[in-house]
C-alpha cells in the first residue's frame, strides 16, 4: 500500500508548526496505524531526521494514551476503536492521510502530535474520587447492594479511558462527555453520594477554568468516543449540576 501522509510537525510548545508531507510505501493492510507510524519513524531515523513524536502506551485499546486526529476524525474513520486498534486496511492504496494532534486550548501541543492532557487530571483531582475508610475495617464494596441497572450504567460510564477524543471532536473543544462520564460513574453508586454535590460543582468549575468549551449537543463526541460513552451521561451531569446548585 502506497500512501501520502500529511503530518503536523511542531518542534516544541512555542514553535509555530506546520503540515509536512511524507510519502510512504510498502504498508501492509494488517498493520495498525501506530505500526505504520513506527515504519515512517524508522525511515526518518535512518535518514537522519527527527522522528515524529506521538503518544502511545498499551496498544491494546484500553490505556487511552494514543490520540491522533486522522482525516478529520479523532482516532480515524473507524468506530469504537482507538488509533492503536485502527488498521491500515481501512485506507485505500494511494490515499492521502491527514494526521494532526488534538486541537484544544486546554490540550496544548508539546511536540508534533503529542498534547498535554493534564487538564483532565486536574478535573479529576477537583472531584473525581470517593471517600473511603482507611482505618483498617474497610467494608467490601460488594457488600453494598446496588441496583443492576445503576451498576451497568456506572460501569459503562467508567469505561471512559480519558483519551480526549470527545474534546478533539467537539466543535467547541468541550470536555462535557469526559466530565459527565466521571461524574456519572460515581453519582450512580451509593459510595459516590457523600461528595455528589461538591463533585459535580467542582469538576465543572475546573473544566470551565481549564478553557474547555460548552456543549452544543451536536453528539460528535458520542460518535467518535472509542468506548461509546453515551450523551445520556451529559444529561445526567446536567441534572446532577442542577440539584447541586439548588442545594
Amino acid at each position: 500500500m502506497k500512501l501520502t501522509l500529511k503530518i503536523w510537525r511542531q518542534k516544541g510548545p512555542n514553535d509555530k508548526g506546520q503540515m509536512v508531507t511524507y510519502p510512504i510505501d510498502n504498508i501492509d493492510g494488517d498493520m495498525s496505524f501506530l505500526e505504520m507510524m513506527d515504519v515512517l519513524n524508522n525511515q526518518l531515523i535512518e535518514s537522519g531526521d527527527d522522528p515524529i513524536a506521538f503518544d502511545h502506551d498499551c496498544r491494546e485499546g484500553i490505556c487511552g494514551m494514543c490520540s491522533l486526529y486522522i482525516n478529520g476524525e479523532a482516532h480515524g474513520p473507524d468506530r469504537g476503536v482507538t488509533t492503536c486498534q485502527l488498521h491500515m486496511r481501512k485506507f485505500s492504496d494511494g490515499e492521502t492521510i491527514y494526521i494532526e494532534p488534538w486541537r484544544a486550548k486546554a490540550f496544548p501541543v508539546i511536540k508534533d502530535l503529542v498534547v498535554d492532557r493534564s487538564s483532565f487530571d486536574r478535573i479529576m483531582a477537583s472531584g473525581g474520587f470517593v471517600s473511603v475508610n482507611t482505618s483498617g475495617n474497610t467494608v467490601d464494596a460488594n457488600a453494598i447492594p446496588v441496583p443492576k441497572a445503576d451498576a451497568d450504567n456506572a460501569f459503562e460510564a467508567a469505561t471512559c479511558i480519558g483519551c480526549g477524543a470527545c474534546v478533539a471532536s467537539c466543535k467547541n473543544a468541550s470536555a462535557m462527555l469526559f466530565v459527565s462520564a466521571k461524574v456519572s460513574q460515581l453519582a450512580l453508586l451509593p459510595q459516590g453520594q457523600v461528595e455528589a454535590a461538591d463533585r459535580v460543582l467542582n469538576m465543572v468549575k475546573t473544566m470551565d477554568e481549564e478553557g474547555f468549551g460548552n456543549c452544543t449537543n451536536t453528539g460528535a463526541c458520542e460518535v467518535e468516543c472509542p468506548k461509546g460513552i453515551s450523551l445520556e451521561n451529559i444529561a445526567r451531569m446536567n441534572r446532577e449540576y442542577m440539584s447541586a446548585m439548588v442545594k
Binding site: W8, N71, R103, A106, N172, T218, A220
Partner: peptide
Amino acid sequence: ARPQNYAYNNPGANS
C-alpha cells in the same frame, strides 16, 4: 476553546 483549527476536518461524519 480551540484557538487553532484542524488543517483537515470532517465534522459531517459525526454530527
